[in-house]
């Protein structure tokens, strides 16, 4: 079992999420913040500006002309996507290490996170094509707790997998029984420490038990299904394999059926192939 104070210490020892990311995440949800305010926030960070422009000019977006400034970028890709670029640029450094405890080689957790972000966004777009940015963000960050638990999981992996096999429980449930915390709970602690918006915290905490969501049930359902699709495609799957529970209520929560999910998975596959360049660029 991991004592709570040790987990909190581990949370505090991680480098903080840059201020600008937290500000942008909150600003993007604030109707009183203008596009100009957003540009002001980003343009004073040259390294970030360069990274965002490289992402904008990648073939994934296939924009008709080269984008040279954050202002132009906002016109073409919109606020939500810009915020996601910034977040992706900052998070990729957290995700780049191998998570040996989970059997994930270098970059695999990043691939899984981007895959889940793309899938969650696709699922959200079926509901409302204009409001998909937050689903992407939540997908990108849903497994952040794995960074915290990796070393502990590595020490107990045989016990965890034996529990999964013998009792047919999910990997996260087995983590909780063996370590005292699942990676979703650890991620939730980290998200609070980083002062992320509440819907994102809920998506991290409940993406594996979407029925428990209160504040943002649709968002949580979208990330749950995005994660299930990603795992089903084997994207960034480690020693935890496919040991995650599918909750059919998540489909009902967003008015979908299994056949809709299969049909959408074709779009997710296309989006993911297009995003391979994006995955490399954000690294």
């Amino acid at each position: 079992m991991i004592p709570l104070d040790r987990l909190i210490k581990k949370v505090e020892d991680l480098p903080p999420l840059p201020d600008i990311v937290v500000k942008l995440l909150h600003a993007s949800r604030d109707p009183n913040v203008s596009t100009r305010d957003m540009v002001e926030l980003i343009k004073h960070d040259p390294a970030l500006t360069i990274k965002v422009l490289r992402l904008c000019n990648s073939s994934y977006y296939g924009l008709p002309r080269k984008i040279n400034s954050i202002q132009e970028a906002l016109v073409y890709i919109g606020t939500d996507t810009l915020v996601n670029f910034v977040l992706a640029g900052c998070l990729s450094s957290f995700y780049q290490q191998a998570q040996d405890g989970y059997g994930l080689s270098k970059g695999e957790l990043w691939r899984h996170s981007v895959g889940c972000a793309i899938a969650s966004q696709r699922i959200a777009s079926r509901d409302n094509p204009d409001v998909t940015g937050q689903a992407f963000t939540a997908g990108l960050i849903h497994d952040i707790g794995k960074i915290l638990l990796d070393a502990y999981v590595g020490q107990e992996i045989e016990t965890i997998l034996r529990l999964v096999e013998e009792e047919s429980i999910s990997f996260a449930e087995a983590e909780k029984r063996v370590l005292g915390f699942s990676h979703t709970e650890a991620g939730c602690e980290l998200a609070r420490h980083w002062n992320l918006p509440e819907p994102l915290i809920e998506a991290i905490a409940y993406h594996q038990m979407p029925d428990a969501a209160k504040l943002a049930p649709k968002l949580v359902a979208q990330v749950h299904l995005g994660n299930i699709l990603c795992i089903s495609f084997g994207i960034g799957v480690g020693s935890d394999g496919l040991a995650y529970t599918f909750h059919p209520h998540a489909l009902a929560a967003i008015g979908m059926e299994v056949s809709d999910l299969f049909r959408l998975s074709l779009d997710v596959h296309d989006d993911y192939k297009k995003a391979e360049e994006l995955i490399g660029l954000a690294a």
Partner: peptide, 9 residues
Amino acid sequence: NVLDPKENL
């Protein structure tokens, strides 16, 4: 297969 107790997926 992911864990799917009601065999929906």
